[in-house]
Design a protein around this nucleic acid. Structure first.
Lengths: 336, 336
DNA sequence: TACCAATCAGTAAACGCTTGCAGGATGGAG
DNA sequence: CTCCATCCTGCAAGCGTTTACTGATTGGTA
């Protein structure tokens, strides 16, 4: 195999303790000795065995990313943000699928992470998700992105404001019958969804419009779902002149549905999404953009902070700002 | 902390060796003993320390995914395919950024992986990429997806056929001046790109059309790049009536560029992409679709096969089939 | 009945680091 | 010149598993 610390020690004429200290930049090592050790290690192509140092030190030097999906844009982009933050240091990134309803896991999350990662950042998983909650109770260092939390550090946009912003934009354009394409129909605590919906309702109410449940449908945050949801809205008694989609991907689906019905987004039905998805420009989609990669980076940094501070760490809530990007999918209603 | 194997052993009234064997399902342990051990382990909430078993066994139970990008659709989707294959077993997935020109790494890849993963699957990295090549020379178990290789197992589409298919489609529609939006301008061995280009040239030649370098531009496989490349093509002396884009994302950029110039894809300029990107439907983009997630899954399976077989493993080349999906972005030239 | 193969279980030696502890220099202060 | 704090280094005890080996049963066979 590869050289061991003992071989390096022998070759450099020191003890393994000194090699260990020298290579990790610990104090109390003579500069000349350190140079000699480093040089020897290089010459022997020595790299410390992670398993051995993990076992001995109790630290794993890896952080886990917990995500329900890895290929969907939002999730993949957060992951890349985390990766970005990590490549600065020597930390490993362990990818763990969690909370994907289609592929439930058999082993409890806490057990899958124990002695395997020093901490984790969870993507779009609320802190009351069963597995996440369990993790927190075990005092597993955690940071969440995509939802705010009182229990652990979190990075997210203000979802209420986001909903308000998008809806107000449509109202300003003159729309009154504003539909909503939401996510999951079962209301099991998906805060993001609830908050955006609250913002939507708030904006309506504030402008003297009574929210109507008949203008809401659900698209499970997927393109296909968005398509179905739009079709459904189009088949309701009163059809909206504008629709607020809780994600760009659902908005993409909505666009496709409109097209199928011979309708044009922005002409026949105004559309606003959320995300700032790369393809929103292509789709001419008005959207409330969030700095997704940056959110991942911030979450990773917060986690590292927590890991280095230890016990006395105080959870922080970072709320990053969104930006309304207006494109031709949102325009005044036909009459105007 | 958590229970150790010794505590379980004591509690179950056996030796640690027996616990180890019982829990891992090894033979030569009495069924009654095994049950007792398993039950005890469960009761004590025991989970074997990965570091310890890795150190003792020499196996890491981890496979690394090497990728230049984690957020781009193709890469993210391959990763998800790998993850899919891994969740069947107890393997960890280590995510490693490699070969992203914008963020070069300081430590040699081989050292970053040594004793850290049992094997790796590399995404869209040719087997003659410096770091990958070095890995292969060190006999590090590797599988590549996105390019075929003679040195290690690989999963990919037939890129030549892909180029031919797309180009022939355009020719069949009646086009003669068929442009090409390729990837990187510097020809450092990106086989995928070269092969698709070969297929393009072949199709042209076979139909009596002489390929002209003045109809090629480069978009670095990004949307922005595709946009620039299209703008450039539109400014050439003879402008193509159709353009073959080596990726859907570049085609998206091309569409945007066309729109800026008041041109309509499929009417003024026919467009074909490669990938089967989820948003290709939204963009009405004709594309040569590849089963990306499946490719990731196959690569992961091949790697596991290699790991379990060992020395005598013979590298395999898996060529998965593509499918031309025709949409309105490709239509006969205006005159017809 | 004697013998052997197959099963089951335990002992203890790795695996390759980290780190508490202690000892030897060294140099400045008193 | 003595004393002490500081710096440097080595010793050796873990860290928690895995896995040869060895030994003890057991049951089948000749």
């Amino acid at each position: 195999m590869s050289a061991t610390i003992r071989e390096v020690a022998t070759a450099a004429g020191v003890s393994t303790a000194t090699v260990s200290r020298a290579l990790r930049g610990l104090p109390y090592v003579d500069e000349a000795t350190r140079r000699r050790v480093v040089e020897t290690a290089q010459r022997l192509d020595y790299v410390a065995s992670p398993s051995a140092s993990r076992l001995a030190s109790g630290r794993t030097g890896t952080i886990a990313v917990l995500t329900p999906y890895v290929a969907r844009w939002f999730f993949a982009t957060v992951i890349s943000g985390v990766a970005m933050a990590l490549t600065e240091g020597p930390l490993d990134l362990l990818l763990v699928e969690v909370g994907n309803p289609e592929r439930p896991s058999t082993v409890p999350l806490e057990q899958r992470l124990r002695s395997r990662a020093d901490g984790a950042v969870a993507i779009a998983l609320p802190d009351d998700h069963p597995e996440i909650s369990q993790l927190i109770e075990h005092d597993f260092p955690l940071t969440v992105v995509g939802s705010l939390s009182d229990r652990v550090s979190s990075v997210a946009i203000n979802d209420i404001e986001t909903g308000r912003l998008a809806t107000q934009h449509l109202i300003n354009l003159g729309h009154r019958d504003i539909g909503l394409i939401s996510g999951a129909t079962n209301d099991d605590g998906f805060a993001t969804q609830d908050d955006r919906t609250d913002g939507y309702n708030e904006a309506l109410t504030r402008n003297g419009i009574t929210p109507s449940p008949s203008l809401t449908s659900f698209g499970s945050f997927t393109r296909e779902g968005g398509e179905r949801a739009m079709v459904e809205l189009l088949s309701r008694e009163t059809t909206p002149t504008a629709v607020f989609c809780l994600s760009d991907e659902m908005a993409f689906g909505a666009i496709i549905a409109l097209r199928r019905h011979g309708l044009t987004p922005g002409i026949d039905v105004a559309l606003v999404g959320v995300d700032g998805h790369p393809q929103s420009e292509l789709a001419n989609l008005t959207t409330v953009a969030q700095p997704v990669a940056e959110m991942g980076r911030l979450a990773a940094l917060a986690l590292q902070e927590k890991l280095s501070v230890g016990e006395s760490y105080v959870p922080s809530k970072q709320s990053v700002s969104v930006e309304l990007i207006v494109r031709s999918s949102s325009a005044p209603p036909k009459g105007n």
